[in-house]
Amino acid sequence: MQSNKLGWILLAPTLVILFFFGVLPFLYVVFVSFHQWNPFAASPEMIFNGAENFRRIVFDEAFLNSLSVTVAFVVFAVLSELIIGYLLAQAFMKEFPGKSIFRTIHTLPLIMAPIIVGSVWKLMTTPSIGIIPHYLDEWFGITMNIGTSAPAAFMTIVIMDIWHWTPLVTLTLIAALVSLPRDPFEQAQIDGANKAQTFWHITLPMITPALVATVFIRLMDALRTVDEVWMLTGGGPGSSTRFLGVHIFKEVFPKTNYGYGSTISVIVLYLTIVACWLLYVSMLAPRKNRKG
């Protein structure tokens, strides 16, 4: 009883902060999402309009386009980061010359703010000035212009995200791999399991909790990506990289469409929760069933 009370006392500051800076703003956004509110409209006051914003979103082509490019981005970026991150983690489990230097360099992108990453990549990819289009043209005769080519802009953003966030996946998976017990691997070796079998039946199930946590973090981050994209393409060319975060930003800030912007935010939060839940079920449920 005593420890329970102490626990609540120790938790209290965090709970208070969470309530005021997390729960309350969230409830306010939900409240605003049921209103028509643009401070620069002829009637700038908040007007309750029921579920009209939610009805509108279903037919909003701009939102649906943003949703589709975001999903494509998340699938490409997160999947690539997981695969590359795992391969790098496995590589770092072995000894090779210059390993510590390589690991340090490999981790550097993580300490960069997203807006800086966007700026650096903009410098590297600006047509006729950037180093990437220059050498693509000089070595392979490929013309790269992220201002006109939607696929080029999209792939550049995916590659930028992979470059920025793969180190996080690598570090998390190194931590998971290092903590694995040796016994099951030795047992598998004695039983004659090959590498694929060892990975599929031993490594993967044992690192799944870390993998799930990593996927959740990257998924949530990728779904709300704004800074890098804002800096690199501004959502263009056209609307080809207008991801949900950028779409919400443009709706809420320049357009000051607070009501509808809040509705989009609530829907995106809902979709994020659903996506995470589906992932959780698909990645952890089979494991539980195996145990059962």
């Binding site: 620069f40 056209g238 609307s239 357009k255 000051t256």
Partner: peptide, 13 residues
């Protein structure tokens, strides 16, 4: 800003 943002995506296209 409202009219600009509403029409700009079409201009980009």
């Amino acid at each position: 800003a409202q009219v600009r943002e509403a029409t700009a995506p079409i201009l980009y296209q």
